[in-house]
């Protein structure tokens, strides 16, 4: 069960928390995040006098619903509330509330962190700041993308319904490119100007690392076709894959050369092992 709301009115934090546990005794913990308007936030140095939240009404609740469903699929939540305000807000006012209830603290805390990270990068809201100098649209921050992406790469807690969750121990859940995609909230449109084959990076249980030539990002299909599937990133162009591998594992001319040769040969098998398990 989840409560999702997009509204101009303020919310009552205490009442929302109380509603999550009202009449039940199976909840062991509730995690709460409340985001508020900070006055000193403007990039041009001037204090923020007000902030206006714009959104895409037909899409907002749907996007929030998808993010909440993802959290519910990953953690054993007994309740979940997401409220996002829109319209003109003053410093100190509430912007967003995320509250999660679970039998144990870790699931509640992780799910709340996940929800706020994904909300920042996967739901159609835009902040406009007013200062004495005028108004400006808040720019998306790469650190927010990175925060959302960490759920794709590292996972946080094994969701109860993940394959092998019972035996996987600390193995990250099979999350896949859905997170990467949500983190970027749709690929930049300029990517169309760089045509080329795309590759998915696959992480297997036991440490295996593979590339697969693949244009779609259907991680359900990937999960079924790869025994030991853990998680995946992409689909990206070959140079983006190589750059990511260099950043993550340290530069390797040999790995880059192998990856490039693989990418350049359309007759090659669709899969390349980068590192053994």
């Amino acid at each position: 069960m989840a409560r999702i709301a997009v509204q101009e009115a303020d919310f009552d934090v205490a009442a929302e928390v109380a509603a999550l546990s009202a009449g039940r005794s199976d909840i062991g913990g509730i995690a709460l995040f409340v985001g508020t308007v900070r006055a000193d936030k403007s990039a041009d140095g001037a204090p923020v006098r007000a902030m206006t939240l714009e959104h895409y009404p037909a899409m907002t609740e749907r996007a929030l619903g998808a993010i909440v469903a993802e959290a519910q699929a990953r953690w054993p939540l007994l309740g979940c509330t997401v409220i996002h305000r829109v319209g003109r807000l003053l410093p100190g006012e509430n912007i967003v509330l995320v509250a999660t209830a679970s039998a144990h603290r870790q699931a509640a805390l992780d799910a709340a962190a996940f929800l706020i990270d994904w909300l920042k990068t996967g739901a159609p809201f835009w902040k406009h700041e007013e200062t004495e100098a005028g108004g400006r649209w808040v720019e998306a921050r790469e650190s927010d993308d990175a925060a959302a992406l960490r759920w794709a790469r590292a996972g946080a807690a094994a969701p109860v319904n993940a394959p092998d969750a019972a035996t996987a121990g600390s193995t990250p859940p099979p999350i896949g490119v859905a997170a990467a995609q949500a983190a970027r909230a749709g690929a930049a449109l300029s990517e169309a100007e760089h045509k080329g084959p795309r590759f998915v990076i696959l992480f297997l249980r036991g440490g295996g690392l593979w590339l697969e030539r693949r244009a779609d990002n259907d991680w359900h299909a990937l999960q079924q076709s790869w025994p030991g599937y853990r998680t995946s990133l992409g689909p990206w162009l070959a140079e983006d894959v190589i750059a990511w591998l260099d950043e993550e594992y340290g530069p390797s001319a040999a790995r880059a050369a192998r990856s490039r040769a693989f990418a350049a040969d359309p007759a090659a098998p669709t899969r390349l092992e980068i590192a053994p398990g």
């Binding site: 895409y56 996002h84 739901a123 809201f125 998306a140 909230a185």
Partner: peptide
């Protein structure tokens, strides 16, 4: 069409 989102 819109800029990268900045909610939360």
């Amino acid at each position: 069409f819109f800029p990268p989102v900045t909610g939360g």
